[in-house]
């Protein structure tokens, strides 16, 4: 079955808004995402999912040269970065978009859908 990567991308404004929320304010979102994850599992569409720590905890490794170059933070140009993701199985793009719509509602953010190779 084809697999799709559902990415929740944040821009700086969204990240700032999210980090300003209290745990109580975050709670409904966590619950909605929990329900969505259960739906994925019940439907047999679940592969893997996770939320990521903030972009300030990110480290970039460039191993393309002779020695690895390790730098702090994401690529300096990026305006958007990955906040969390799901990997799902779906028959086709329409099915994946349907899951993405529900996931977007649950987490309160836009979701990018990309097919895996193969």
């Amino acid at each position: 079955m084809p697999q799709y990567f559902l990415a929740v991308n944040h821009d700086e404004a969204e990240a700032a808004r999210l980090s300003a929320l209290t745990p109580e304010q975050m709670q409904p979102m966590f619950e909605a995402v929990g329900v969505f994850n259960q739906q994925l599992q019940d439907a047999g569409a679940w592969v893997f999912a996770g939320g990521l720590e903030g972009v300030e905890s990110s480290t970039v490794v460039d191993g393309t040269g002779d020695r690895p170059v390790i730098t702090d933070g994401p690529f300096s140009e990026s305006k958007e970065f990955l906040g969390g993701f799901w990997i799902i199985e779906a028959d086709d793009l329409d099915a994946a978009l349907d899951w993405a719509t529900r996931g977007s509602k649950a987490c309160g953010g836009r979701v990018e859908v990309r097919p895996f190779q193969g």
């Binding site: 084809p2 028959d91 086709d92 793009l93 329409d94 859908v113 990309r114 097919p115 190779q117």
Partner: peptide, 14 residues
């Protein structure tokens, strides 16, 4: 081809 856009008439709801 790569994203597997279906060759199908959408379901009644869509």
């Amino acid at each position: 081809a790569t994203a597997r856009i279906p060759f199908r008439v959408p379901s009644l709801g869509d």
